[in-house]
Amino acid sequence: MNFAIETVNLNVYYGQNHVIKGVDLKIPNRGVFALMGPSGCGKSTMLRTFNRLIELNEGARVDGEVRLFGENIYSGDVDPIEVRKRVGMVFQYPNPFPHLTIYDNVAIGLKLNGLVKSKEELDERVEWALKKAALWDEVKDRLNDYPGNLSGGQRQRLVIARALAMKPEVLLMDEPTANIDPVGTAKIEELLLELKEDYTIVLVTHSPAQAARVADHVAFLYLGELIEVGPARKVFENPEHELTEKYVTGALG
């Protein structure tokens, strides 16, 4: 089977701290894959190894392999910038560029990377990305407004549109609804169900309930170790490991 992401004996250290401990994980192509676990278990760190964003942290060291569609992204000849074009990322705090208009927020990556040949093509791609992110209808008449006028949920969908405009193969989301109200959260969760038809989405969440709602597969991390991984239905109905059972039922800690 061709996996979107596969880790082989993945270890991450922050200085002397061993934060990801020998994880072997296979993430199937297309669908929502949730990484869940309590705060500090290493889930966000692991997500950052999937697009080499971890390297921006000077104290971090990565051992082992992360394969993106079979190719080890940590081998010497791989350019991390190219990896990040293929693997988009959405963060916990919606972070559109405040000084750019809604239109330019989506267009900027395309312009900087010379990915479109004409203004018409750029317009088309911006509209496509905003539609994919389920935001087009709400902003089509105010594309020249600034994102400061958008709600938290709209800003997060704008950031998703910005990531989608680059046509990534994988979308990483680090607790994308942690700072969004329930209505905005529901919209983003619905959006995930649409996007998973075309993309592999890796979602970090500290909420088992959210993972149960949206994920096809779930992995449970605890103190840097992969405790359990499997289809969401199996993990939430009948977890194999006692620690997983305790975590999902709220009895851990």
């Binding site: 088992p208 149960a212 939430f236 109905e237 009948n238 977890p239 997983t244 059972e245 999902v248 039922t249």
Partner: peptide
């Protein structure tokens, strides 16, 4: 409570 695992069962 959206219970799962042994609670749900």
């Amino acid at each position: 409570y959206s219970p799962v695992a042994s609670d749900l069962r």
